[in-house]
Every structure is written in C-alpha cells, then in structure tokens.
C-alpha cells in the first residue's frame, strides 16, 4: 500500500527534516504517528499526502512510484487519500456542507447523492444544526469535525489525520476515533498523528514514532510501548486486535537530528 525506502526530505536548501525513513504500511492497517513537536510528523504526513516531494529515497503508494510522478498523475492519487489537517484547512467562504462535499464533487458525484451523503455524515459527527454555517462562525471543535467529515466522506484508501482529536471534547473524540476505526475495518489504511499517548495506548495499534527526523516503528507489544501502555486496545467500543511483536527500529540510529519542521506545503 505505502512503501517508503530511505526517504529524506528537506525544505528548500535547508537541512533534512526527515532522514532515511523506511516503512511499509499494509492495506487496512492502523498506525499512530507519534513524536514530539518538531520531530517531523507533519513533514512525513506531507510526503504521504503528496504535498511535498522527497529530497531522496523511493516512495511507492497504491503500487505506483510517486517520488518522481508527473504532476498530472498526482490528483488521481490524491483523490484516494483523505487528510485531516491540524489547522483544518477549510474554505471559509463555503458552508460546512459544501466543504465536506468537495471531495465527492471533485470525483464527479451527482448533486442529490452528494447532499444526502454529506448531510448524513455531518449529522453523525454532531453538526446537524451547523450544516449551512461557514467555518468563521464555527468553533475549533466544529471545524475539526467538518475537516474530519471532509476527509472520510469518500471512504479513502488512505486516511491521514494530524491531531484529529486535539480540539474536541472526550465524547466527540471517542466518536471520531470510532469513525476512524470503522473506516479502518472497512479497509482504509489509517495513520493518525497525535500527541495523545492515552489514545494511542487505548487503541493498541502499531505506532510510528519520529524522533529528530528519524522513524522508529513499534508494535503494541514493543518494550518502550508497553512501558507507557495501560489498558488493552479498547477504543470507542471497538476492540482492536493486538499481537505481540519484538521491538523493531527501522532506519539507522539517530545521529545529529534536525529539530526544524517548518516550511511551505504546495
């Protein structure tokens, strides 16, 4: 599904913010992406949602090499990816319904069909009364739910979420995680970047940990993971399968890592 091999990334002429990233995400897998601020989580997500080119290495997504893919091929690949941005990135002049409808509209969906799907989903995330509202009048949590609805409306093959529960209350967070897990069960490969270690522990899914631009892949049974783990992976009423694996660290050891994680997207 997603294969990174010795991938490096830099912004402009700066030093590398991601170094020798190698991993393989199987179809239908669920992963958490953790790491402190500046570790490179957003940069890694940018590579995964094709907003940035790697400075080196090889990336294969949906069985296509994308590191040097032609621009004309990117939209087709991007339409298979749902992204929940940390800063929501909603279009302020569109209503919640229109924002969520965008991916369906871009895929050539029919008006009535789009509207029905969008309204159902918005009602499900608790925004039934805010459908015609525009982002500037929505609260942070409401915006986040609109952003999530937009990311999942088309049931993407790959769902990337950057701090998706950062601005919502625990009840809504649980509901959102339930949605992600349900989508994952339906076959959507899911990567959730988060600082919320409690959520990671509860979900008990595999974890991709970034530290100073280098990636460590950890399974739920990994030693350092187990140290932080509390209860087995029940989340939002969904119990995730857990397997015991020995610790795995992908990529070389951490040397002189760069703390920078700034720069433009497109």
């Amino acid at each position: 599904m997603i294969h990174f091999e010795n991938v490096g990334m830099r912004y402009g002429m700066g030093s590398e913010v991601l170094k020798d990233i190698s991993f393989n995400l199987k179809p239908g897998s669920l992963h958490f992406l953790t790491g402190s601020s500046g570790a490179g989580k957003t940069s890694l997500l940018k590579l995964m949602y094709l907003a940035h080119r790697p400075s080196r290495g090889k990336i294969t997504m949906f069985r296509e090499d994308v590191e040097n893919a032609a621009r004309r091929d990117l939209p087709r690949l991007r339409r298979r990816i749902g992204v929940v941005f940390q800063d929501f990135r909603l279009l302020d002049h569109l209503t919640a319904v229109e924002n969520v409808a965008l991916p369906l509209w871009l895929s050539g969906g029919k008006g009535t069909e789009i509207e029905q799907h969008v309204e159902e989903l918005l009602a499900w995330v608790g925004l039934k009364d805010r459908m015609k509202s525009r982002p500037p009048v929505l609260s942070g949590g409401e915006k986040q739910r609109v952003a999530i609805a937009r990311a999942v409306i088309k049931r993407p093959d790959l769902l990337l979420a950057d701090e998706p529960t950062g601005n919502v209350d625990p009840a809504i967070a649980k509901r959102i995680m339930h949605l992600f897990v349900e989508l994952n069960k339906l076959g959507t490969t899911t990567v959730i970047a988060t600082h919320d270690m409690e959520m990671v522990k509860r979900a008990g899914a595999a974890r991709m940990h970034l530290h100073k631009g280098r990636l460590h892949l950890l399974d739920p049974g990994d030693s350092d993971f187990r140290e932080e783990e509390t209860e087995a992976g029940e989340f939002g009423g969904i119990r995730l399968d857990q397997k015991e694996y020995g610790p795995k660290i992908y990529g070389p050891k951490i040397y002189g890592a760069n703390e920078n994680e700034e720069g433009g997207g497109v």
Binding site: L74, R79, L90, L91, L102, L106
Partner: peptide
C-alpha cells in the same frame, strides 16, 4: 493560494 493548495490536496486537477 491557500484555496488552491487545499483544492490540490483534495485532488483537484490543474485544469479544474
């Protein structure tokens, strides 16, 4: 610019 960037991420083609 931001709108264009969002549309790109959602899979809009340049011609669109």
């Amino acid at each position: 610019r931001e709108t264009i960037s969002i549309m790109h991420h959602l899979g809009a083609e340049d011609s669109m």
